[in-house]
Design a protein around this nucleic acid. Structure first.
Lengths: 114, 114
DNA sequence: TCATCATATCGTATTTCGACGATCAACGAT
DNA sequence: ATCGTTGATCGTCGAAATACGATATGATGA
């Protein structure tokens, strides 16, 4: 259980970068490793950069940009989503993906603690 | 080609954290992925934290801290070194490892660009 | 309703990872 | 010169990752 105190948050890491201002909740070593692992593939880096350039993409947009089969791209998107690096939202017959800014902030905060 | 102007660097990412101030040289997507992949294992995270706490460790110190065989730890250290996240220096019969601050800075810079 | 489009999932083959014990190489001390 | 210590490398095994085509799902439109 995580208790939520009524005091103002004073000891938490506040990350201020060019993209967002976020309070990153600390993550465990295993979560940190899982996120880094998800990041550890060139095609998944490209997917993240693509989502950073455009605000959001549907699966087909990502497939069109990468030299991979549709099923492979779908799997990479699942891995990124499971790791908390992106978010997927079903929009009718499509799925729209965008960066998960809080997940990315948590990862950056963990990186900074090394 | 990246032209190096004579103006003061104004568009480069300068990372200021509690550990260091560094201008990170940009890395390729493949290098980024390789570094993240190396980071993507809980035991390797623990090794990095260990090296962050102490200034440096010899292989045996790391072996003593982890529930792994000596050969396995040596392999993890090799992976981290190949990825540019740590540095190893041979000191007589031992090898002393420490964090590679420029590699870590480059990784943080790449993370920030997402 | 039926066909179509967009995605996710399944089954599978290949490759890579992670772990171990055993061995090899290098250095220091006796 | 030989021995013990330290750590890297080799060989091997099972597990996991990566890729693909084929198929299932589910919403939209004719």
């Amino acid at each position: 259980m995580v208790s939520v105190s009524t005091e103002p948050v004073s000891d938490e890491c506040v990350c201020v970068d060019s993209h967002s201002v976020a309070v990153a909740s600390p993550i465990s070593e295993d979560q940190f490793a899982a996120m880094a692992k998800a990041l550890g593939h060139p095609m998944r880096i490209r997917i993240l950069r693509l989502l950073a350039e455009r605000q959001s993409c549907i699966t087909g947009d990502v497939v069109a940009e990468l030299p991979l089969a549709q099923s492979t791209v779908s799997e990479h998107l699942r891995i990124l989503r499971d790791a908390g690096l992106i978010q997927g939202e079903i929009e009718g017959p499509r799925t729209s993906y965008c960066l998960n800014t809080s997940g990315l902030a948590a990862l950056r905060a963990a990186m900074a603690s090394l």
